[in-house]
């Protein structure tokens, strides 16, 4: 045999599905396109500005941190920093000053992700770390929302549906508007329908499984449904809860983040259930009108524990069930 071409020897298996980290990350980005189009329609140029700069900041910070602080191969090509950038932007109001956005991106990438060792090692969802950092540091800027350009009113800013629900229940948009996204809110969270389209795409491409979104949305619907049966006020309306605020965005795109969510299907259901409960508790009885980010980050912290106590359903556990 020709000695020039040495044979490669490695343990089985010798073929690979071709799946890769970038493929999954870009898959999620594709699923976010409908929501982006809605925000483009609603917030016009501001949507583009915030999203583009958020991505640039996130990718830039990751590049600088890997290159100059960690002194490792830059990992930006895996697409995870882009995804963090887009998700962070989708969680922000469209009129946020860019310097605040930069601080948010630094918190997301620097604190949320790279300080733990980069993709795969972080405990909390980086985009949510960025958002919560901003929410606590700049409460005023983070909770004033520009009125959608398509909604013809004179006001310049408005409160979100949830804020109205809690503090001003007579001033609610119609359910159809909420479904389509003609309401005040963060960039990406406004249209439930667009987000559901993204969910459909990710399920079809097998990027995520149904467990987490279903558990969260189901818990919220049932929880508020029971309250609505007891006391039918708008604050208890299950559909309003499902279609408003960051619930859809969180349940579909934030809580399902691979790194920070549980591994087993059982664990995913438990995780989703508690996110739903915590969200509803904050929404109904907390100081903030919205509780999704806090709920997810809290449950991110419990993920290792859930992983430890839930095991996948093993072969042979059910005996002779012919």
């Amino acid at each position: 045999m020709d000695m020039e071409t040495k044979l490669v020897v490695s343990p089985s298996p010798h073929i690979h599905s071709g799946d890769s980290i970038p493929k999954n990350m870009y898959g999620v980005l594709i699923a976010l396109i409908p929501a982006f189009l809605v925000s483009l329609y609603v917030f016009r140029l501001d949507a583009v500005l915030i999203t583009v700069f958020s991505v640039l900041f996130c990718v830039g910070f990751e590049y600088l941190i890997t290159k100059f602080i960690l002194k490792k191969e830059p990992t930006i090509s895996d697409g995870s920093a882009i995804l963090t950038g887009v998700l962070l932007a989708f969680n922000l109001p469209s009129n946020l000053p860019l310097w605040i956005l930069a601080i948010g991106a630094l918190a997301a990438i620097g604190i949320g992700k790279m300080s733990f060792g980069g993709l795969g090692n972080n405990i909390f969802n980086p985009a949510l770390v960025g958002r919560i950092f901003l929410l606590i540091s700049f409460p005023a800027q983070m909770t004033t929302w520009p009125v959608p350009a398509v909604a013809a009113t004179d006001a310049v800013t408005s409160a979100t549906v949830l804020a109205n629900l809690k503090f001003n229940p007579d001033n609610l948009p119609s359910l159809t508007h909420m479904l389509l996204g003609i309401e005040g809110g963060s960039l990406g969270e406004i249209s439930a329908l667009a987000l559901l389209l993204g969910l459909g795409y990710m399920l079809w491409k097998k990027i995520i499984t149904w467990h987490i979104p279903t558990a969260i949305l189901g818990t919220v619907a049932i929880f508020s449904g029971i309250l609505y049966l007891i006391n039918p006020i708008p604050l208890h309306h299950p559909l309003i809860h499902l279609f408003s605020g960051g619930l859809m965005l969180g349940a579909i795109f934030m809580a399902t983040d691979y790194v920070t969510s549980p591994l087993t299907k059982k664990g995913m259901l438990i995780y989703g259930f508690f996110i739903g409960i915590i969200t509803m508790c904050i929404r109904l009885w907390g100081a903030y009108p919205e509780g999704m980010s806090f709920a997810i980050v809290l449950m991110n912290g419990f993920t290792p524990l859930i992983n430890y106590y839930t095991t996948p359903k093993r072969f042979g556990e059910v005996r002779k069930n012919g």
């Binding site: 000695m3 040495k6 044979l7 490669v8 020897v9 490695s10 343990p11």
Partner: peptide, 16 residues
């Protein structure tokens, strides 16, 4: 004479 392409562990290579 050949290229080992598995996980970097002597024990794994020796088993192969």
């Amino acid at each position: 004479t050949s290229i080992y392409d598995g996980a970097p562990s002597c024990a794994i290579e020796a088993a192969l």
